[in-house]
Design a protein around this nucleic acid. Structure first.
Length: 276
DNA sequence: TTCCATGTTCCGCA
DNA sequence: TTGCGGAACATGGA
C-alpha cells in the first residue's frame, strides 16, 4: 500500500512529531525487519542522536540522525503494510494517516524520544525494512532508484527520456522503481485510467498527447493524494481506485471494470475508455 | 481451507 | 542484452 503519497505523508508526520527530538532508546521487537544489522548496532548508532532532517525518494524515507561526532541516516521502507505512529500516552496515540480505525498493532521498532513520546514503526506483513546509511548521497548515486515522480526536476522532458528508451508495456514501466520511483500498482492503474490508456499498450504505440497526459496525471494523482493526507476516501469519486473490486462499474461510462494480470500484478481498467 | 493481495528481488527463458 | 513471466518472502482476511 505505501506508495509515494503515503510515504510523503509519513515524512511529514515525522517532521511534525519528532523533528528536533533526541532518541533516548530504541526497542526492536522483530529483528528480521533490520536489513543487514543487529539491534545492538542500531541502538549504538542512534541513541543520543537528534532527529535533524527528513528526505524521501520514491517509496523510501530517510531520516538524518545527528550525533556529536558523526551523523547517520535511518532508511525506512514500508513494504506493503508498513506505517508509523506516535504517542505520548494512551490518549495521544495517533497513526500517520490520522485514521483512528487503524489498529496500533504489529510494532516492530520503537524509538523512545526525549520528550517522553514514542515513534513506532508498524509492519504487519514484514516486507518492510529498516536500516542505516552512512552517506546518503553515495547511497542514492549507487542505488538503482530512478528519479522521484514528484521531484520538480523530473519534468516532462525527463519523463519522456526515461520512458521512450524502453520497449515495454506502459504499466510495468510506470511501476519500475529504476525508471521512476514512487509509483506502485494502485496509482499506476489510476494514472492510466485518467488518460484512457490501456495498461498493456506498448510505450512505442503511445501518441505524444497520451504521453503528455500520463506525465500530467502522474503529477496530479500523486499530489492530490498527498494533499488528501493519503486518505483515499478524500479523492474524487471519478477515481478508479474506488472501484478496485469485483462487479464494479466505470464511473465514466458504467461499463464493467475488468481485472487482469499485467506485468505480474493485478490490474484494474475500463475496457471501454481504455481500449487496447 | 485455499486463495489472494501487495513491493521487491531473484531466477530462468526466449 | 532486453523483455517478460514466475517464484519467493510474511501474514491475515475473504
Amino acid at each position: 500500500m505505501p506508495e509515494l503519497p503515503e510515504v510523503e505523508v509519513f515524512r511529514k508526520f515525522i517532521e511534525r512529531y519528532a523533528l528536533g527530538r533526541r532518541i533516548q532508546a530504541v526497542e526492536v521487537n522483530q529483528h528480521k525487519i533490520l536489513a543487514g544489522l543487529t539491534a545492538q548496532a542500531l541502538e549504538k548508532k542512534l541513541v543520543g542522536g537528534q532527529i535533524a532532517k527528513t528526505q524521501r525518494r520514491g517509496k523510501q524515507l530517510f531520516v538524518k540522525i545527528v550525533q556529536p561526532k558523526q551523523s547517520v541516516w535511518l532508511l525506512f521502507h514500508f513494504g506493503m503494510t508498513g506505517y508509523l505512529s506516535w504517542s505520548k500516552d494512551e490518549k495521544t496515540a495517533v497513526n500517520a494517516y490520522g485514521d483512528p480505525k487503524r489498529p496500533l498493532s504489529h510494532i516492530r521498532v520503537q524509538f523512545h524520544l526525549d520528550d517522553g513520546s514514542e515513534l513506532s514503526f508498524h509492519e504487519q506483513r514484514m516486507f518492510g525494512k529498516l536500516t542505516l546509511i552512512d552517506n546518503l548521497d553515495s547511497y542514492l548515486a549507487n542505488s538503482k532508484l530512478g528519479p522521484d515522480a514528484l521531484a520538480p526536476t523530473f519534468d516532462e522532458k525527463a519523463f519522456l527520456t526515461a520512458l521512450q528508451r524502453l520497449q515495454w508495456q506502459i504499466k510495468p514501466a510506470l511501476m519500475d522503481q529504476s525508471v521512476i520511483s514512487g509509483i506502485g500498482n494502485v496509482y499506476a492503474d489510476e494514472i492510466l485510467y485518467q488518460c484512457g490508456v490501456h495498461p498493456e499498450r506498448s510505450i512505442a504505440s503511445l501518441s505524444a498527447s497520451d504521453l503528455k497526459c500520463l506525465y500530467l496525471q502522474m503529477k496530479t494523482v500523486l499530489q492530490n493524494t498527498v494533499d488528501c493526507n493519503a486518505d483515499r476516501d478524500c479523492l474524487p469519486a471519478s477515481y478508479l481506485l474506488h472501484y478496485r473490486k469485483a462487479k464494479a462499474k466505470c464511473p465514466k461510462d458504467k461499463a464493467p471494470i475488468k481485472s487482469k494480470t499485467v506485468g505480474g500484478r493485478t490490474t484494474y481498467f475500463c475496457p471501454v475508455c481504455q481500449p487496447l
